[in-house]
Design a protein around this nucleic acid. Structure first.
Lengths: 222, 222, 222, 222
DNA sequence: CATGAATGAGGGTTCATTCAT
DNA sequence: GATGAATGAACCCTCATTCAT
């Protein structure tokens, strides 16, 4: 939740919201926040975080610059809130992707089951990628690193279950390569659309399939 | 968009006209340009292209801002020229990476002959890398496009010579994937050192080898 | 200049009309006004008039900005009303400082009777002091002028009653000097405490006594 | 001297100014700085430091906002530079005012010799007063306190030489009162002009004369 | 009347670019 | 050519004030 900016140090909390009164006003505020975040996502996607101007975000949300600052104390806060929301959603999604049941499938199916939802999420939320990539905000960069570390751990886990004899270092290297390949492909996927996008998705799976197939020879299980 | 000052006939400053009259003047100009490009490379590496200010570049080159604009019509032109030079140098310096003689080798040797110098070059010229970033984000500036297009064309050329029957689109897709994989791996390579770096270099070659081997079945030639 | 909203006939909100119909409504209004003025006093003390924001005052009063503007047409009006009230209270609370009975006393007693309550009042109401600052600097706002004019008029009144023959200009000059000396001393008094504070109070009386004694030679009356 | 603002950390000093070359350019810069400081003084006097906008200062100096920032890194730096210059001049002037030879004069002459130059200085440099009074800048506030402490020490010195038997505390109290009275009167003096200003100057001397005369009874010397 | 979101002009500041010298 | 001052649009952000609910 974004913190309301305040004139000095917050001396008196607005009123403690005695009950669930004034749902209408709150509703409007929530709507505005959503509106602004959507606008910010759009602008961040178009121009990246650094080049996105708060005025442009406000304009995109069809409000005045002042309104934006009623809900977010500064430009960074917008990115952090947006990044946080997307991150939460991404985590939920990842939880549904790395399921034990997937590990029994053959590699092509495993790739489909794993990559498709993640790609879909990124296609629907292109701001996620833009933010994680190039915000330069320490908070977000850290979140990005945590996200990356989490993903890496999951990939390593899967890999370990497939080739339990490999050295840990090797597992890490391969996992990092997989993630890197994925990110690079995502760039191409997001930059294209329609048949071309489908082609890049297929190509990504081809790369990973050919890369990993020799690694996973023995019949495996968990 | 900034308007180019200067006369319309010469869209790029001196640069061309390899040898002509008044070599003294030219020499000084060339030196200035080199100075400025070196400064730009340094600043781009430290801050990235977007955050680099022309004043900072001029200061790093120990000239005045006015002087900078005597040789480059705007900030973007600096990046384009720098990227172009690096591309050309990459070509000239490292045993003519993309040259015909390499095309006759089998894939592993080709990859070695191609990737090793390029990796070495990128380790020595981090500015090249700094200039390539920002892809994926639609808010791409022209210099990125030109630089990327240059690299892409070369890779496509090689690919075409290996599989002359493939559809142009497919060539492009595969080339883009190759470049993407290369960039992603370069991240890992540059971020590590010693044995780990070597491991990532090997892994990169493995990925590309497995990816491209099925593509290049038929005996090829140029 | 901000335009006053509201009907033209009543330039200042409720405040007047001491008792009339609808006492319930008025009571609530009065309470709100008192609330707001207390908040304003607090904020003015902390930050000074110029740096005090209407939002901060409203927050301190635990009302919304809109409510504030229901009772005061603008920020300046708050200061004017606050200054006026303090002036009036200074008058009413402390044994009617500037009242006729004091004028018959000899100067030392008059000074005691006048200064002691005023000093005490200022120690208890630092907002009064905060509002008086900014004099000397031409960029004076209206509320300062009004407040200052109110005080000045009272001092002039006393002086006139003591030396009815003096030129009005001289009266004004001397009165301004008296006020100035008082303000300067108040700084020292408020900045010290205990014996030192008492010493400065005594010194202030000494200064004024010696300054005014020659002025007030003839037996006086009102 | 104001520091030139710079884009990042100052990595390379502009060039070390090989010789006394380019005196023309330097001259222009110096002139601009003087122009800007004069404009700032004017604006600070009119509106006080806090309310003075850099745009207003630039406009008063008839330059663009950007030019202002070529010579001063921010608004505060302007005030600090201006305050520093005035302070230096004030110190020089004070050195010429508190001379031993003045101590032998009778009080009226001493007051004339002391007050007249200081008043004149403040009338010619009204910005000095505005800045010392209400800038709120730590640096300037501190300088103001140092100035005040220096003045206080001088006044105490004079007083001690006049009444060597007084307790140190009393000397300090009286000196503070004198300074306070002086400052308060300066407000009135600066706010008026012509005959009125003269009247306030005379009144200030009257106040101090009557205040101090009884203190200085015994024939004195140092 | 109360609320709190909405407004928009204005403030300090930056920087790509131009111009007088 | 070189210099560095000059420009001005744009940026992020604030706050007195207004308006819909």
């Amino acid at each position: 939740m974004p913190e309301r900016p305040q004139d000095e140090t917050a001396e008196k909390p607005p009123k403690a919201a005695k009950k669930a009164a004034a749902p209408r006003r709150q509703a409007r505020g929530e709507r505005r926040i959503a509106q602004l975040l959507a606008a910010a996502a759009s602008v961040f996607c178009r121009t990246g975080y650094a080049a996105a101007s708060t005025n442009a975000i406000a304009r995109e949300a069809e409000v005045s610059p002042g309104t934006l600052y009623q809900f977010f104390p500064n430009k960074e806060a917008i990115a952090i809130e947006l990044g946080g929301q997307l991150l939460r959603r991404a985590h939920e999604m990842h939880g549904q992707v790395f399921l034990p049941e997937n590990l029994d499938k053959p590699l092509p199916e495993l790739l489909d089951a794993t990559l498709d939802p993640v790609i879909a999420f990124n296609c629907e939320n292109p701001a996620f990628w833009a933010l994680m990539h190039g915000s330069g905000i320490p908070g977000i960069t850290q979140e990005h690193e945590e996200l990356h570390a989490g993903l890496l751990a999951r990939v390593e886990g899967v890999l370990r279950s497939f080739c339990p004899d490999s050295a840990p270092d090797e597992i890490t290297h391969v996992s990092n390569m997989i993630l890197g390949i994925f990110k690079a492909s995502l760039d191409l996927i997001l930059a294209s659309e329609g048949a071309e996008r489908a082609a890049y998705i297929a190509e990504l799976k081809t790369v990973l399939l050919r890369y990993l197939d020799p690694v996973i020879t023995a019949p495996h299980h968990h």
